[in-house]
């Protein structure tokens, strides 16, 4: 479909700069982008952590206590704090970018971006409250 860029075939003197491997250090917004993308690692970590928790719960009260004790280990705690920072960053960027990806129309008029982002944040708050209430309540 796309041919090789035919650029320099007859023009060996054109100067071409190769993109540095560390291009994402060049600008703060590029760095923010790569940090946003690296949140994927911490999402994966969360799943592993949760699976370990489920496994421990299934094994019995003693085993679950061992899991809780393990999660008090400073290393695990620090990993979880970093992970929390990254997933919150993911959530904020995700909701912020959502209006760009979707167009909602009301009576033929385009709904402003804030009207899409706003309910996203509201849903985030409601979902968080609901999970907390179910886990802690009762």
């Amino acid at each position: 479909m796309s041919q090789t860029p035919i650029y320099t075939e007859y023009h060996p003197r054109w100067y071409r700069r190769r993109t540095s491997t560390y291009w994402w250090l060049r600008r703060p917004s590029y760095l923010a982008f790569i940090l946003r993308e690296l949140s994927s690692l911490f999402v994966a970590w969360f799943v592993i952590f949760t699976l370990l928790q489920i496994h421990a719960l299934k094994q019995g009260a003693e085993s679950y206590q061992r899991f809780v004790d393990w999660s008090k280990n400073p290393v695990v705690l620090i990993v979880n704090i970093i992970a929390l920072f990254f997933v919150v960053f993911h959530a904020i960027t995700w909701f912020k970018l959502a209006p760009q990806a979707m167009v909602v129309r009301l009576h033929g008029k385009r709904v402003p971006a804030a009207w899409i982002a706003g309910p996203n944040y509201a849903a985030w708050a409601v979902a968080s409250a609901l999970v907390a209430w179910i886990v802690l309540g009762g």
Binding site: S71, L77, H90, W124, A127
Partner: peptide, 23 residues
């Protein structure tokens, strides 16, 4: 789909079981 769920739910899960319970 995973991005939406992760954004909505993972922060509170991690806050509860990664921080609130151990601390």
């Amino acid at each position: 789909a995973g991005g939406v769920l992760a954004a909505l739910l993972i922060p509170i899960h991690l806050l509860l079981f990664g921080l609130a319970v151990p601390l």
